[in-house]
């Protein structure tokens, strides 16, 4: 709280050293302000961005012994989304299987499997997909879209799929934990 606190008139100054000092202190001040409040802004933005990605989880599908080569089954993910799982080989690992979303990539209708034609068919705009999910005709083929695939794994002879899951909550909002609360 000294007496020389008022702004020194810039006209009194000459010499580049003085100008440099004023310039660098301004720059430093600006840098300090930007660093501090900028970091705070980043934290605020991160706070607003969704904290969790869409939750996905490995779920049991079937016993390998019960799904023979060439057969397919309709698995319903906990979110309600149907998944067509087809067995196409007999090696006994996940490469035998293809798990295709039943949602047409064109406009979201439900495709279905036509066994005699060996294809998935979308009734909305006659979209056609081959067994691997690749579009072969209709609007999806024109756009080069394929049916979405879900990751699969085989553990101890059991087939598991990684699908989006819904959060089941109870009254106090915590995930159900039952005996392990």
């Amino acid at each position: 709280m000294d007496q020389q606190g008022t702004e020194t008139d810039p006209h009194d100054l000459d010499g580049s050293r003085r100008r440099f000092l004023v310039g660098s202190s301004r720059l430093a001040m600006l840098a300090g302000l930007v660093a501090g409040y900028g970091a705070f802004g980043r934290i605020a933005a991160r706070f607003l961005y969704p904290a969790h990605a869409e939750p996905r989880q490995w779920q049991f599908v079937a016993d390998l012994k019960r799904l023979h080569t060439g057969e397919s089954l309709r698995y319903v993910a906990p979110t309600g989304e149907p998944v067509a799982i087809t067995r196409r080989g007999n090696r006994g690992d996940s490469s035998d299987f293809v798990a295709l979303s039943s949602t047409c990539p064109h406009l979201g209708c439900q495709v279905h499997w036509q066994a005699q034609e060996d294809r998935f068919f979308c009734p909305c705009h006659n979209g056609v997909f081959d067994p691997s999910g690749k579009a072969t005709a209709g609007p999806p083929a024109d756009a080069g879209q394929s049916l979405a695939r879900y990751p699969l794994k085989v553990e101890r002879g059991l087939l598991f799929i990684e699908v989006p899951v819904e959060r089941v909550v109870r009254g106090d909002g915590r995930p159900r934990a039952g005996g392990r609360a």
Partner: peptide, 25 residues
């Protein structure tokens, strides 16, 4: 307190604020 001195203090405090936020992170 000269203006320049105040500017340096602001620079330092801004840096300290950043440090505190790094701690938060």
């Amino acid at each position: 307190m000269t203006l320049e001195f105040k500017r340096w203090i602001i620079a330092i405090l801004g840096g300290l604020f950043l440090v505190s936020l790094i701690l938060v992170q």
